[in-house]
């Protein structure tokens, strides 16, 4: 396997930094604050977040296998705990801590 020199490593890391900066700054460069944002883009800015939060939930669960291992049961139970706690008290930290402790107990002791 090819071993990189320090310079090559730095260039590789710089390429990754440049890629990340591009994805973060591009929308603000295309639609600068001084000009009115097109109506379609404003619409997207309003409706996209709800969909993105759905995407992020799925993204967190992407490696859960329903067919093997624990069949996603610890995830399912713990998410149910989060939902119930949040509907009951609506305290963000309580819901997150409750669900996480439940999950840790399940994967460490039960499954």
């Amino acid at each position: 396997m090819a071993t990189m020199t320090l310079t090559q490593q730095i260039i590789t890391i710089a390429a990754v930094i440049a890629g990340t900066l591009t994805t973060r700054f591009l929308p603000f460069l295309i639609f600068p604050a001084g000009k009115p944002t097109p109506k379609y883009v404003q619409y997207l800015g309003k409706v996209l977040p709800a969909a993105v939060f759905g995407l992020l939930v799925i993204y967190c669960l992407r490696n859960v296998s329903v067919l093997s291992g624990s069949h996603g049961i610890p995830e399912l139970i713990s998410i149910a705990v989060v939902v119930v706690l949040h509907l009951w008290k609506r305290q963000m930290l309580l819901s997150i801590a409750g669900g996480t402790i439940c999950y840790m107990l399940l994967v460490q002791l039960v499954f």
Binding site: T12, V16, G19, T20, T23, R24, L26, P27, F28, P49
Partner: peptide
């Protein structure tokens, strides 16, 4: 490095949505 750059664009493309949501 070119492949590293393009791969980063693909994996981090979701940031574009965050930017669009935060413009205002």
């Amino acid at each position: 490095p070119v492949q590293a750059f393009l791969m980063t664009l693909m994996i981090n493309a979701r940031h574009l949505f965050y930017g669009l949501s935060m413009l205002e």
